[in-house]
């Protein structure tokens, strides 16, 4: 039996959609028993949403005031303690998981498999390296605990369970470290879908030429029910917020549809969209590398094409 513990990232009310993808990854391990761990100041509603994910056998909660805002320093010692008796400890490849899991791995004296993209056996996994220009298969030593971050773009989300998993409170003795204090979080939260899990993403590059011009992409995205992303060039130029960056060092996404406007397609950007089902590219430059990976390409001026698409979407096809 492989006992897999997954840290359930959440926003205080619900588990992050990435967790249902981690569950699918864990279920790919033979003979798996899957436990979700919720660290929260008040875990009840989060735990209920965790228990509703199909394929989850058990939810354990750790309640502590220090978990009102998720801090790696506070969670790591408790997660490491909880990991006793588990063969695998997983977290999502979100900024939360990337921050937390290596701290846990070090406390457990374990290596970490970062961005686990495919399970070949309980000890053999595939992961991307060199901005996804190579895929390495790694084998962990027999008997060693496997700590991993799960590349969420590589897995479909597990469905909803008909019978929710049991929830129990865990007892841990490790005290959260207090040398790290949460001050604030500022986010341009909107009603738009979350970029990392959206089915459709509209994205813009340096060619947008200003933050104001990004407005035309937001308008199109709202019409399509899409999230909005950006290339590193657009973010560096100040046209888009940092949390919109798609690519090797930003978000790795796998939407059904990715619409790239004025993005040339640097290799680091393509890394972030390789798993998109359909890629559409609109660019003035017919030689732009993005056309090499696009399913549908259009050479044209985005400032004409975007409003036209928006108008055409209003008409029945």
């Amino acid at each position: 039996m492989n006992r897999i513990l997954i840290v359930a990232e959440h926003d205080g009310a619900r588990v992050n959609p990435a967790i249902a993808k981690c569950v699918t990854c864990a279920r790919a391990i033979p003979d798996a028993e899957v436990t979700l761990a919720v660290f929260a100041a008040d875990p009840a509603t989060v735990a209920a949403s965790a228990a509703a994910i199909a394929g989850v056998d058990r939810v354990v909660t750790v309640t502590h005031a220090a978990h009102a805002n998720p801090l790696a320093a506070a969670i790591a010692p408790q997660l490491a303690e909880l990991a006793a008796g588990y063969s695998h400890v997983f977290g999502p490849s979100t900024t939360f998981g990337k921050d937390l899991m290596p701290r846990v791995a070090a406390l457990l004296d374990s290596a970490q498999v970062s961005d686990l993209m495919a399970v070949e056996s309980a000890t053999r996994f595939r992961r991307p390296i060199y901005a996804s220009n190579a895929i390495v298969t790694v084998e962990s030593s027999a008997g060693a605990k496997v700590v991993a971050t799960v590349r969420i773009a590589s897995f479909e989300a597990a469905g909803v369970s008909v019978a929710p998993a049991p929830i129990e409170a865990a007892v841990v003795s490790a005290a959260p470290d207090t040398h790290t204090r949460f001050v604030s979080v500022s986010s341009a939260r909107s009603d738009r879908p979350d970029l990392q899990t959206a089915a459709k993403v509209v994205s813009g590059g340096r060619a947008l030429a200003s933050a104001e011009n990004f407005g035309i992409l937001f308008k199109l995205a709202d019409k399509m029910g899409a999230a909005v992303g950006a290339s590193r060039a657009a973010v560096d130029a100040g046209y888009a917020a940092n949390d919109m960056q798609v690519g090797q060092t930003g978000k790795i996404i796998a939407p059904q549809l990715y619409l790239a406007f004025g993005i040339s397609g640097a290799i680091q950007h393509l890394t972030g969209i390789k798993d998109a089902r359909t890629i559409v590219a609109v660019n003035k430059d017919p030689e732009a590398p993005i056309f090499e990976v696009a399913d549908i390409g259009l050479v044209g001026d985005l400032f004409q094409v975007v409003p036209e698409i928006e108008r055409l979407l209003d008409r029945p096809g």
């Binding site: 053999r124 190579a134 090499e292 044209g300 036209e308």
Partner: peptide, 22 residues
């Protein structure tokens, strides 16, 4: 602790179609 068993090139996306207008 993690033995690299083998390295593979990533699966390539194939070039799709070009359209002429919106």
């Amino acid at each position: 602790r993690l033995k690299a068993v083998k390295f593979d090139p990533p699966p390539q996306r194939t070039k799709g179609i070009m359209v002429k207008d919106a």
